[in-house]
Simulated scan of single mutants.
Amino acid sequence: MTTSVIQFQERLKRIDSSPLFQWTVISVIIISALLIGARTHDLPPSVIGILTFLDNAVTVFFLIEIVIRFLATPKKSQFFKNGWNIFDTLIVIGSLVPDGGSGVLLARLLRVFRVLRLVSMVPELRLLINALIKAIPRMGYIALLMFVIFYIYAAIGSIVFHEINEVLWGDVSISMLTLFRVATFEDWTDVMYETMAVYPMSWLFYLSFIFLTAFIFLNMMVGTILEVMNEEHEQHRALQHGESAEGGEPASRAQIEKLEAELAEIKALLKQQSSS
C-alpha cells in the first residue's frame, strides 16, 4: 500500500470520526424522518417536488457517508464483520430503489427504515439494542414457559367455559387470544363476570392466571433485560477505561473489586513485614 493511499485513508478516517461529521449525519437522519412524515400529508405538487429533491439529496448523502466509512477502513473485509456496518449498508442500498412505477410502495417502505440509522449512530442506542439481542435467548425460555401456562389455562377455559361464550372459549386457539386479553387487562373483568354468573368460583381461574403471567413472568422478562443491560454497560465502561479481563474480554466490576481487595491485602502484609 503506497504512502498516498495511507494518507488518503487517514484523512477519511479523521473525517468519519470527527464530531462535526457525526452530528451532521445525525441531523440528516432526523431530516430524513421529517421528510417521510411530511410526505404522508396532502401537499401541493410544488411542495412534493421540493420534498422529492431533498429526499434524493439525503439518499446521495447517505451513499457518500457509507463510501467514506468503507474507504477509511484499512482492511475492507473487516468492514463487513461489523454488524452495524452491514445494517447501515443494507439501509442505504434499500434507499437507492427508484421511487417510481410499480416500486413506489416498496421504495417508500424502504426509506422509512432510514430512521433506524439513528440507532447505529448513537452509542447509547447501540448498547440498548445489543442488550435486547443478547437477552433474547434468556427471554426465550421464559416465553416458552409462558406459552405452556397459556396453553394449560386455554385448554381448561375451553373445556369449562365454551358453553357460556363460544366466541371467547370455542377452542384452544380462541381461548389463548381471550387469555391474552386478560393478561393485558383489556376489559378482562367483563370476561370474568360472565363466567362467574355460571361458576361463582371462576375468579380463581383468572386471578391465578394473572398472578402467573402479569406479575411473575413479565417481571422475569424485565429482570432479564435489566441484567443484560447492566452487563453491557459494565463492558462498555471497562472498554472506555482500557480495562480487560483474561481472554481479552472486558473486566467486570466484580473482577476489579477483587483485584483491589487483593492489592489491599498485599499492602497490609508488606506493612506488617516492614514493622516487624
Rank of each mutant, 00 (worst) to 15 (best):
M229W: 04
E257D: 11
T89S: 13
L20V: 15
T52Q: 10
L218S: 08
H241I: 10
M201L: 09
W84K: 02
V28E: 01
A245I: 02
A143G: 09
I136Y: 02
N219Y: 11
A268E: 14
R138G: 11
I225K: 01
I133G: 00
E262H: 13
F62Y: 14
V222R: 13
K81C: 03
F61C: 06
S175K: 02
L207Q: 11
K81P: 00
A154F: 08
R69E: 08
V67E: 04
I86G: 04
L218E: 10
I91Q: 02
S276H: 13
V191K: 06
M220K: 01
Y151H: 12
T89C: 05
V47S: 08
D55K: 08
N165M: 06
L239E: 15
T178C: 01
P74F: 09
M1Y: 07
M220H: 08
F209P: 03
R108H: 13
A254W: 07
I156N: 09
I68R: 04
F21A: 10
S202C: 07
I6H: 09
E231I: 00
F209H: 01
T59N: 13
V115W: 11
A143R: 03
T2D: 13
S158I: 06
V122W: 00
W188G: 03
A183K: 01
N82S: 13
D88L: 08
I210Y: 05
P45V: 06
F205D: 05
G223F: 07
S173G: 05
E227M: 01
I152G: 08
R126G: 02
N165C: 10
A261S: 14
A197H: 12
D99E: 06
T213A: 11
S202D: 03
V198P: 07
E257R: 07
S120C: 07
F215I: 12
L96Q: 12
F61A: 09
R69P: 06
T224W: 03
A143W: 03
L259F: 11
E260W: 04
G37K: 09
I68D: 01
N82V: 10
L263R: 15
Q7H: 00
L96K: 06
I129V: 15
Q9R: 15
G100V: 05
E163I: 10
A131C: 06
I142Y: 02
E194P: 01
L259T: 12
I64L: 14
L63N: 05
Q7N: 08
S120H: 03
D171E: 10
S46R: 11
A183I: 02
D55I: 00
E265M: 07
E231F: 01
V172M: 13
L239M: 12
L145F: 09
S77E: 09
E246I: 08
I48E: 06
I31T: 13
A143P: 01
A261G: 11
H41N: 12
M221R: 08
E163V: 12
F61W: 07
Q78G: 01
L259S: 13
